[in-house]
Design a binder for these strands. Structure first.
Lengths: 122, 122
DNA sequence: CTTGAACTTCACGTCGGCGTCAAATTTTAG
DNA sequence: CTAAAATTTGACGCCGACGTGAAGTTCAAG
């Protein structure tokens, strides 16, 4: 599969796909002329990457988790990945909590507005 | 009050305060020599700005909401501000939901790891 | 009056995830 | 075989909320 095909099937731009490879999140073989060749598995992989990006994880974080996610676990990387994932989960949790607080304060503003509108007969 | 005082009382750096003014979120009078003069009200105003920034709102968004928050409401800007706030709230909600899904999938990965570790006697 | 702290404007640096243009090459269709 | 489409690498652009000097001016204290 060529890069344009992978792009069409995942929705990621070709630029994004090259960026993913540059970051070590995606690998490819090359044709005689140097063009990238991707496989069916890469479609799933890119979709997975997109989910992680959408989740607010950075390339570095994804890179740290990906080896474990995609390869056969070994004692070494299992321990490290476990620690890293737990750490990320906690960060994510904190992030969610912060956003929730923000939402609440926004709700306060909205409630104030609503009350104000209700008290007035425009 | 000078910019350093306002900085000390709000925790915002002087750079940030000048940036707020540049963005139209804060106003000041000037001394004969051109130095900014702030009032007690500005302390509250900056703290309010900080809350909104902490809430993840951009300068542009804040700028759109501020007229309503700080001035006498009129029917026009009340409606606009209400719409804007509601919109922001929904974006935030969607973002939170997305992060929650990611956290869940991360939990799945962690659970898988844990089970794997438990099944092995290293 | 002098010192030095506080202040002024100007303007480049930062980070991440790409967008976008450019010139050269490769692949594919006819 | 040729023209056109796809792909390659390289490199600058962008956004947002400031950080971080730099060079010059002003203010408050002794």
């Amino acid at each position: 599969m060529r890069i344009g095909d992978l792009s069409a099937r995942t929705g990621a731009t070709t630029r994004a796909l090259r960026y993913y490879e540059e970051q070590g999140l995606l690998t490819s073989t090359r044709s005689a002329g140097g063009h990238r060749r991707f496989t069916e598995q890469d479609v799933d992989r890119v979709r997975y990457l997109q989910r992680l990006y959408l989740a607010g994880l950075s390339s570095q974080t994804i890179l740290a988790l990906l080896p474990w996610c995609l390869s056969t676990p070994t004692p070494d990387n299992t321990d490290a990945a476990f620690a890293r994932m737990t750490e990320e989960r906690e960060k994510l949790d904190a992030h969610i909590a912060e956003l929730s607080r923000t939402r609440d304060s926004l709700d306060d503003l909205i409630a104030g507005n609503r009350a104000f509108r209700a008290s007035k007969a425009w």
